[in-house]
Amino acid sequence: MQTDNSIYNTRGRIFDIQKFSVHDGPGIRTIIFLKGCVLRCRWCCNPESQNWEIETMLQNGVKKVIGYETTVAEVMKTVLQDKPYYRRSGGGVTLSGGETLCQPEFARALFTACHENGVNTAIETTLCAEWDVIEPFLPLIDTFLVDIKHMDSEKHREFTTQPNELIHENIKKLAHAGANLIVRVPVIPTFNDTPKELHDIAVFAYEELGVREMHILPYHRLGYDKYIGLGRDYPMGDLPSPDKDKMEMLRRICASTGIICHIGG
């Protein structure tokens, strides 16, 4: 790894690096969680990712500082530790968040560094950004993992604080540009878990975008402790997770459009 190059000195703010993830892109991956997001999805399981500001969260009774400044060089040191596993599995790095596109310079530098070191790249993004910001990423990213949360813009805004027009516009442009797209849908009871809502998304993905593969991810409550740890209310109340049968039913409905649909990442 060359570190005299300026991209390696690019700074950014992240809050976690998680190794050995196999649900966020192909193979065994290292996920870099960037801090700060433009959406405030009610079901978000990483509430500590949302604010740009560095904050403290109580974890098992211990105060933990969430978020730190780092450089591409520092991150790459960790990333490259798992290169043997990327090579064997076709895996690599996934940038997640928060919203990666909030730190475009850092993210571009990180992706460039990955490619320079022969590491496959993926991004998990809301796509809630101007196309000018997104376009330069096209050659740098091997797989885009993109949420389509709801086809109805008003409901989208109600549950995420942002409407969906810009996001869906960007997805179309990505698809048009031939990006390798995997569509994901968080299945959230009371928000988008009816057969019709899922079906509409599948039709959009398969017919309008020409996407081959979609993943439906059941809502889970694993973020609960984090909200409490941050001194915040849990926005989803007591809402239970959708059960296996329901997910399977929804999967079939999506698959009926012709798209390949998996439950989970």
Partner: peptide, 17 residues
């Protein structure tokens, strides 16, 4: 299948080293 593949890749990666 993905779980099995990743598992085998983990063993391979460990053995490579």
């Amino acid at each position: 299948q993905a779980g099995l593949e990743s598992f085998v890749a983990l063993i391979r990666g460990y053995f490579d080293q």
